[in-house]
């Protein structure tokens, strides 16, 4: 399960972001959003992600956009990048330009 840390550091995604963890993932993401500015997220540890996990990130990115904030990727694992690309979500998640 992803764990929220202090907002000064990037929000780290856990190894697994699948439908199994999705309920908790949503709660943690919602709790972590209480800050101003862009939301920095670290996806370098993601080993497995599925449609449910990517859909939540998509919803979260849209929520940030409502307040003119962005989801900023600090790290992107191959599994995360490939999964988003495979579902046609890389652009919507801002992963296309992420390093």
């Amino acid at each position: 399960m992803p764990v929220a840390e202090a907002m000064s550091s990037p929000f780290p995604l856990d190894k697994q972001c699948t439908v199994r963890e999705a309920e908790a993932f949503k709660l943690v993401l919602a709790a972590a959003e209480d800050s101003s500015g862009d939301f920095v997220i670290d996806g370098s540890a993601v080993e497995r992600i599925d449609t449910a996990g990517l859909q939540l990130l998509l919803g979260f990115a849209a929520r940030l956009k409502l307040t003119e904030r962005r989801l900023v990727w600090q790290g992107v694992s191959p599994a995360l990048r490939q999964g988003a690309a495979q579902l046609g979500l890389a652009d919507a998640l801002g992963l296309a330009e992420a390093a």
Partner: peptide
């Protein structure tokens, strides 16, 4: 896609 708050994590939109 609904708003983030309305997302049911087990449903694909």
């Amino acid at each position: 896609m609904p708003s983030f708050d309305e997302i049911d994590p087990a449903v694909c939109y």
